[in-house]
Design a binder for these strands. Structure first.
Lengths: 132, 132, 132, 132
DNA sequence: TTTT
DNA sequence: TTTT
């Protein structure tokens, strides 16, 4: 069991990239407030990296924008990578299995009349690297 | 909502430290298998940093040992810190709210006859730094 | 581990009652859509009984109304009771531990300017009966 | 979001039945202790009805026995049915999406050498009735 | 680096 | 109806 459930707002628009084999990968940072979003100041949030793969990645790219509130269900993954100067680092991120839209996309961003309020993804343990 | 539920084995004995004000903090790494712990090789695990505070920290120190299987419920926190040479880093860790013991402590590690199989903690958002 | 996490809408205003010892108990039914709340018809929901105790019960009574969307975290409990004609029955209900308000109370139901968007409760295993 | 996560012991061997179209359905009752399984007496458990469908149902039938400890992830469903004398009743049950075996099958129940310790299922919202 |  |  490796289960993560988060409710928060996108801190940025999702970025969608493609692996060499053509798989879509969306990534964004989710601002998860620690104390209910009250008046406790602007720093009371965890900014949690989210990645989504394939069909779910494309749903994110097409339907999510900065500021939108979502529920993310996924698993917590520790990924190793090397910095440009050769240091080994570890990064934690949540690999989304499903994303529930708790708000519609902002009207200003374009039409959003008919999107599904839920979109389900598959759990993936991809062999491929996340492209940078 | 910021909820994490993990089942895994302690990759090491918990380390218990104390903050300047005397609060106990336990930390350990939890090995969470990705594919059900079968024969897929030894590398298929995420090693997830866990911290526990106060009474739950002491319960960890007294009752958990390397290799023991537990269920951890907590929240995912991103913490900023500085390296010795002044670089800013961010680390993700799970702040445990409760830990359920799925196995008794190894007999070889000492007496463990009558411990509770569950121990519950409170969610904490401590002001204090985790001591290193 | 006995954990339930639901996102849905109140199917009715909460009813707040008091036990003989004066503990508040709120109860309501939560409509949880099965397929993302799309156009699949009105019958695709589970109506799940929720109960909340004490301070959380009062928060429910004061801040929640029919139709409002909430996230409920709790545990699943099977309770035995007797019908008026002496039959034994079992009912399942979710005992709320925390409720996150995903929407503000309807303006028409009264002022809702400044309520907290989160309200946290304690897990309770009360000895007392839920009053009818 | 309709998510249930339970850790408990099978109160009985699973019963596997088949729908008219041939789908397997397993059902059993899961005893979920309220206070950590300590010495608080024998009545401190919720007996929660679990159902599993298709491949997961067969895995249950083949690998689970009374008394075995498992982790069940699923959704909470309210199902309507009629009693033999025509009364309408509602029953709550957890439709399992995945089951993690926290213990191997009892040796006395037969060979259990090489079973997977995890088995994953799909979320189903079947049109068909659960056979009685 | 950041959301409301 | 029940598990350890």
């Amino acid at each position: 069991m490796n289960k993560v459930i988060l409710v928060g707002r996108l801190a940025q628009d999702p970025e969608v990239r493609y692996t060499q084999s053509g798989k879509a990968v969306a990534s964004f940072s989710l601002a998860v407030n620690r104390f209910g979003g009250g008046a406790q100041g602007q720093n009371n949030a965890d900014f949690i990296p989210i990645v989504a793969w394939e069909k779910l990645a494309e749903t994110c790219g097409n339907n999510l924008t900065k500021g939108q509130r979502v529920l993310v269900e996924g698993r917590l993954q520790i990924r190793s990578y090397e910095t440009n100067d050769g240091q080994k680092r570890r990064i934690a991120e949540v690999v989304a299995q499903s994303i529930e839209f708790l708000e519609r996309k902002q009207a200003s961003t374009g039409d959003a009349g008919n999107i599904d309020v839920n979109s389900f993804g598959k759990d993936v343990f991809p062999e491929e690297e996340i492209p940078f």
